[in-house]
């Protein structure tokens, strides 16, 4: 095979959408797409993949209910050796970050991660990636290689449409898993306890690293109060403990789609954009005219947020 091998991702009984985006990328690249689905009950998860991949291999084992790279690796390595794909593709997710470098390392294959674009160029892979927190784009031309391992940024490709391919599926019974190391999955933990659910808010005033420190949070809260809005934030603000984790918008936090999202001092790294880009109206204030947030905002203001904050509050009686 010279096509693409996609490693499906699922959690707590549901297939993850990012898998379908990998299939979208695989189909865009052309050639055969084969999907590996490892699960306790893969048949129950196969529905969404069927019709979007040419080949589908279903591996069933009770220990595959939750992801564990040590259990996945021997299966995926055998499949790569048998199928000889040009590309092994999976999401750049908490799972892909655990699996892709381990696979590439154990098989000695080239690895490109968090890709936003992939194309073939005379048998070698060309890759686009966002670097420096989304402030620059990297274009990589790889040397020719028989097989490359790649992870794909969520949202970079559209999900493969249903019926895009005719699927031949095959069930593979795994009698024995052969982990190299005794890593054990213990349990899932639910998210942090909420003081307020930012996903329910009509208007979010959201602050980023540009807010500078905890002493400046009350200024943003004052504007939020004047607007009848809820205060949210980007990752660095929650990491620093300036606002609770429950206020964080982004891939690892909450996905929000309020009527209005007012982004103050948020540069707009991809992980943040993924959590807010479907908001009704996005207004961004940032001192850097090239901040990536302006690519998803509807309205942009290049200014010092500390000049804008009091003036805006004033206009709403704050």
């Amino acid at each position: 095979m010279s096509g693409v091998l996609v490693i499906a991702e699922h959690r707590q009984g549901a297939l993850r959408e990012a898998t379908l985006e990998c299939l979208g990328a695989a189909l865009a690249l052309g050639g055969e797409a084969t999907t590996l689905l490892l699960a306790d009950a893969p048949d129950a998860l196969a529905g969404e993949i069927t019709g979007r991949t040419h080949g589908l291999k279903l591996y069933a084992h009770p220990d595959l209910a939750a992801f564990n790279p040590e259990l996945y690796l021997p299966v995926v390595m055998d499949a790569v050796k048998a199928l000889q794909p040009s590309l092994v593709l999976m999401p750049h997710s908490s799972q892909g970050m655990d699996l892709a470098p381990a696979l590439a390392g154990r098989l000695g294959l080239p690895l490109v991660t968090d890709c936003t674009g992939l194309s073939w160029n005379d048998g070698a892979l060309s890759v686009q990636r966002a670097v420096y927190g989304g402030k620059a784009m990297q274009e990589l031309a790889l040397k020719p290689a028989a097989t490359v391992v790649a992870t794909l940024q969520a949202g970079a490709y559209q999900a493969a449409p249903a019926g895009a391919a005719e699927t031949a599926s095959e069930s593979v019974t795994l009698t024995e898993l052969a982990p190299r190391h005794a890593r054990r999955f213990l349990e899932y933990l639910a998210g942090v306890v909420e003081d307020v659910d930012i996903a329910e808010a009509d208007i979010l005033v959201s602050v980023g690293r540009g807010i500078g420190g905890p002493d400046n949070i009350p200024q943003a809260q004052a504007l939020a109060d004047a607007l009848g809005a809820t205060l949210s934030c980007s990752r660095p603000v929650a990491d620093a403990g300036w606002l609770p984790k429950s206020r964080q918008v982004g891939t690892s936090g909450k996905t929000v789609r309020p009527k209005i999202y007012l982004a103050l001092g948020i540069s707009g790294a991809f992980q943040h954009q993924a959590g807010m880009k479907n908001s009704g109206t996005i207004i961004a204030v940032n001192s850097d005219p090239r901040a990536p947030i302006f690519q998803v905002a509807h309205y942009g203001i290049v200014a010092d947020l500390f000049e804008v904050l009091p003036k805006l509050s004033e206009r709403f009686g704050g």
């Binding site: 080239p110 690895l111 070698a124 966002a130 670097v131 989304g134 402030k135 620059a136 784009m137 990297q138 274009e139 990589l140 031309a141 790889l142 040397k143 290689a145 996005i282 961004a284 005219p289 090239r290 990536p292 302006f294 690519q295 998803v296 905002a297 509807h298 309205y299 942009g300 203001i301 290049v302 200014a303 000049e307 804008v308 003036k311």
Partner: peptide, 24 residues
Amino acid sequence: SMVDSQSLALPPMGEGAQMLEGGL
């Protein structure tokens, strides 16, 4: 290295937001 060549570019400007112009 697996990389043959690489280059960086700034993301395109002027795509996306309508920038509000004028004094503060």
